[in-house]
């Protein structure tokens, strides 16, 4: 394995690509979880009359969400793009 290969491998790992289905899924999870966490944080804080509870709930749920959505977990790579087979170019001169 050459140095260039190692570099390409590291870059690939850091970039953490996921497929299109995974993107859709991650975006949906982000939206639902954050909005739900905000509403929950407000409601619980209001009932317990404590701003500390509100911001702990929001902070902890944001961290959990980041952990669930940001790394390229295998769940988000279940639908790889199926490319069509390459067309063989016909050589016009040979005809």
């Amino acid at each position: 394995m050459s140095l260039a290969d190692v570099k390409a491998y590291i870059l690939e790992a850091v970039e953490g690509k996921i497929d299109f289905e995974g993107q859709k899924q991650a975006e949906y999870i982000t939206r639902v979880a954050l909005i739900a966490a905000t509403i929950l944080a407000f409601a619980v804080g209001f009932i317990l009359q404590s701003l500390q509870v509100t911001f702990v709930i929001l902070g902890v749920s944001s961290l959990a969400l980041g952990l669930a959505v940001i790394p390229p977990w295998p769940v988000y790579n279940r639908h790889p793009v199926a490319f069509l087979p390459a067309k063989v170019e016909k050589d016009s001169k040979s005809q």
Partner: peptide, 23 residues
């Protein structure tokens, strides 16, 4: 959203909106 950075951006953008609404 293809790379990690795109997802970090997506989460933090929505988080700041939610924080503003909460405040």
């Amino acid at each position: 959203m293809h790379s990690i950075y795109a997802r970090v951006n997506n989460v933090s953008a929505l988080l700041s909106t939610c924080t503003m609404c909460l405040l």
